[in-house]
């Protein structure tokens, strides 16, 4: 059974490929940045560079945090393109909550 037969406005195999590729790219990029940052951060070897290591570690974390956000945006766009407004709105709600949560993080002082 093809996805399109399950319900109208559902994601196609190609749409799923787009989501999967985005997740793989984000996961691999963040893993590479974190691993190289960690390697540079370790003290006592000939290419040890804690400062650059910290920059790469933070870049890796930002890439990792951005991946699910990218996934929500892509899914929202794909549902919108498929004419499935209901699920596009669900994605938008999740995105708004994530944005609100981020705002809490940056605005609330502990």
């Amino acid at each position: 059974m093809d996805d399109s037969e399950i319900s109208s406005g559902a994601l196609t195999g190609n749409d799923r490929g787009i989501i999967a590729n985005g997740l793989r790219l984000g996961g691999n990029l963040s893993f590479a940045l974190l691993a190289s940052g960690l390697f540079l951060r370790v003290e006592g070897h000939f290419v040890s560079n804690p400062r650059l290591g910290n920059i790469l570690l933070n870049a890796g974390l930002v890439a990792l945090l951005a991946t699910p956000v990218y996934r929500i945006l892509t899914t929202m766009w794909l549902y919108w393109q498929a004419g499935n407004r209901r699920f596009a709105i669900y994605c938008m709600i999740s995105l708004i909550v994530v944005a609100a949560s981020s705002a809490v993080g940056f605005l609330v002082r502990r």
Partner: peptide, 9 residues
């Protein structure tokens, strides 16, 4: 990610 971003901040 809804938790990780504020924890990071």
């Amino acid at each position: 990610v809804a938790t990780a971003i504020p924890y990071y901040a």
